[in-house]
Design a protein around this nucleic acid. Sequence first.
RNA 1: UCAGCAGGCCGUUCCAUCGCUUCCCGCUUUAUACGGGGGGGAGGAAAGUCCGGGCAGCACAGGGCAUCACGCUUCCUAACAGGAAGAUACCUGUGAGGGUAUGGAGAGCGGAGAAGAAAAUAACCGCCCCGGCAAUCCGGGGUAAGGGUGAGAAGGUGAGGUAAGAGCUCACCGGUCCGUUUGGCGACAAACGGAGCCGUCCGCCCCGUGAGCUGUAAGGCCAUGUAUAUUUCGGGUUUUCUGAUAAUUCAGAAAGGCAGGGUUGCCCGCCCUGGUAUUCUGCUCUGCAGGAUAACCGGAAGGGGUAGGUCGCAAGAGGCAAUUGGCAACAAUUGUCCCAGAUAAAUGAUGGAAAUCCCUUUUGGGAUACAGAACCCGGCUUACAGGCCUGCUGAUUUU
RNA 2: UGUCCUGUGGUGUAAUUGGCAACACGUCUGACUCUGGAUCAGAAGAGUCCAGGUUCGACCCCUGGCAGGACAA
Length: 131
Amino acid sequence: MEKFRKSERLCSRKSIGRLFSGGNILFHYPFKMIWLESAGENPFPARIVIGVSGKKIKRAVNRNRIKRLIRESYRASKGRLYESLTLRNRHIDIALLYVADNVYDYDLIDMKLKELFNKFIQNDEPGKEIL
RNA sequence: UCAGCAGGCCGUUCCAUCGCUUCCCGCUUUAUACGGGGGGGAGGAAAGUCCGGGCAGCACAGGGCAUCACGCUUCCUAACAGGAAGAUACCUGUGAGGGUAUGGAGAGCGGAGAAGAAAAUAACCGCCCCGGCAAUCCGGGGUAAGGGUGAGAAGGUGAGGUAAGAGCUCACCGGUCCGUUUGGCGACAAACGGAGCCGUCCGCCCCGUGAGCUGUAAGGCCAUGUAUAUUUCGGGUUUUCUGAUAAUUCAGAAAGGCAGGGUUGCCCGCCCUGGUAUUCUGCUCUGCAGGAUAACCGGAAGGGGUAGGUCGCAAGAGGCAAUUGGCAACAAUUGUCCCAGAUAAAUGAUGGAAAUCCCUUUUGGGAUACAGAACCCGGCUUACAGGCCUGCUGAUUUU
RNA sequence: UGUCCUGUGGUGUAAUUGGCAACACGUCUGACUCUGGAUCAGAAGAGUCCAGGUUCGACCCCUGGCAGGACAA
């Protein structure tokens, strides 16, 4: 259950380009989430790409650390998101960008990410039929 | 004991649970998909990209000029602007030490703002001589000892000498050059003898050594797709020789011209690639003239698609240990080990111990630097909590 | 990841074989005007991104940092 496989990550250059050019944006500090409905050929309901700006976080050490923290937190808390998506048989691509310009610790990032996903699920449910 | 100098080294460790990446096994399985088991998984600077190589592609007969880099000596090294051991001069620290410079030219040419008389054929003030009857003064000449300017002013001190002075002469001192001897592989050092030869800095200049260009997004293969689409304009189409043949034909070779490219920049020269074909008309028909159209080359106009996989790519100027040679950098021999390989990019999270340091105070609380591989090595430079080892210096105390 | 370039008042630019850091706009003060603009007169504002070195002397030359930017799928 708490695995994080390659097919759960978004690796295609084309898909990422499509995502950034026409994705829906959901903002919850310190994250910016861009998501888009996808074809749905892979076995997992979501594919994710994590980004940290080199403009905001100068040192590569800190950038790597933030990415690892986000990935770890995502791995732990993606269950609820998957549940909500599989219930309605949807597949999405997600880009998760870190927009703060200082480093936070694991507890805060974990909490904020959970809040973000709750927000996403709540926003998604009533608008389901329209989409 | 305190303060410091030089050189070298380390730069957190262990356990549990859950993950990521890569390789192996092939237990399960149609299947190396998913499970399962096992091994490996950031640094001394991985950084800056400042030098030098390896490797790859392209290019390459050669010559001249220019450009750039380096520049005391000997050695080390694959190589270097790196390193080791030394030489000379200057600066700096009480000291252990530290820092900087050093190819050649006694040549020649150019420059040195402002200031100053003058920045190198030196006369502003001063000093001395002569002339203007005399005189504060004016004119001519001599003089580099004194003054002031400047970063720098024609070696320094003393004596002789002189109208006044001056290496003009002499003694001593400093430097330079020449010669000889000794020591050293050498840079150079020391000693002796000789020459009145004597301002500083920079550039041009001369000599030696080195430098082809581009970088793994190099480059190779596979897959997909395809535009060498198409339109238009311009260039372009020779000669000689040899053999065969009925031949104006065919085959081969050479040269020239044309187009493009290369040779780091320029010139000469050279090299590479392409094509050098077909046909019509006229005439004087082994030939000449004119035209047309291809191949090919160049300019302009002119849509889209793919952007994946794999090799390169992890056994190397490799690490570790011992011995030997060397003052050392380093080298040789033997033994032993296999030690990251991602690609929207792995090396992480949580909890608990330990170690070191700090604050408080006996309950504890906090901190652990600088920083993240991207083709690979050798250096340099920069950042860095804390700690260890070796040698040495200064101060104080005790014996 | 690789290859390059730039850094001067608040802003945009000069400074040429190394020799007093200049100009325009802007800012401030005064004059003119009923007031503002325009105009005129005057003033302030930098020590050249930072740290060393060469030199008598450095924006300029050399070395090392820092910051910003460009190009190469």
